[in-house]
């Protein structure tokens, strides 16, 4: 449905595209986005039309009492919309916040590269390349050695900041094997633009030693 809006999008490879989700987290957010996009488009069109109508047709709307404008437009219209939307987003987010996964991968940021460790598995440490099993939840534990960075694989889900002195977590899943682009999304100095990594989802994954 959504691609109607941006027909030329269909062709691009979408290495980092939020609109080309490859995991449940990104999928949920993309669905939320398209709902919000169409809702916002309708509201914007209605508001601008209303303004133009009132402006260009001086007798327009004169029979509507003042109270209706204020109570209807100021309260009855926006309040249910934002309550419903926020409740849905919080419900989704609460479910995401309750998720955890037995498989944990450590991502450590530093100027300007990502280092990944796979405790309890036979995977060797890697730099700039994240390996994860496909079709399984993975908890990424994100830390930083120097300044604030942010860990983001757009096609798999939202980002989480790597803050020195803090340990942050995010649960992601890649539905299919493949290579997904990742970036540092918080400005972190001169090498920020080059602080990218790739995430490879593997169909087969070595057995973990608990």
């Amino acid at each position: 449905m959504g691609l109607l809006g941006f027909p030329f999008l269909a062709g691009c490879d979408g290495q980092l595209s939020v609109l080309d989700p490859a995991g449940p987290a990104a999928q949920g957010i993309a669905t939320l986005w398209w709902w919000m996009f169409w809702g916002a488009a309708v509201i914007l069109a209605a508001m601008v039309t209303l303004f133009l109508w009132l402006w260009l047709r001086p007798d327009a709307g004169r029979s509507v009492p003042a109270r209706w404008w204020l109570v209807g437009g100021g309260l009855a219209f926006p309040l249910p919309v934002v309550i419903a939307l926020t409740a849905a987003a919080l419900w989704w987010g609460d479910a995401a916040a309750r998720r955890s996964a037995p498989l944990r991968i450590e991502a450590e940021a530093r100027m300007w590269e990502w280092r990944f460790r796979y405790p309890g598995t036979a995977m060797a440490d890697s730099i700039g390349q994240l390996h994860l099993p496909a079709g399984r939840d993975v908890e990424i534990v994100v830390t930083s050695r120097d300044v604030i960075h942010s860990f983001w694989i757009p096609r798999l889900g939202g980002k989480i900041d790597a803050i020195p002195g803090h340990v942050n977590r995010i649960v992601l899943r890649a539905d299919e094997p493949g290579v997904y682009g990742g970036v540092c999304s918080e400005y972190c100095g001169l090498g920020h633009a080059g602080m990218t990594f790739s995430a490879t989802a593997h169909a087969d994954w070595p057995q973990e030693t608990p």
Partner: peptide, 15 residues
């Protein structure tokens, strides 16, 4: 309003 939604924000924040 879109950005006020936590999940959506986590995708487009800092973009």
């Amino acid at each position: 309003v879109m950005l006020a939604m936590v999940p959506f924000n986590s995708q487009v924040h800092d973009t």
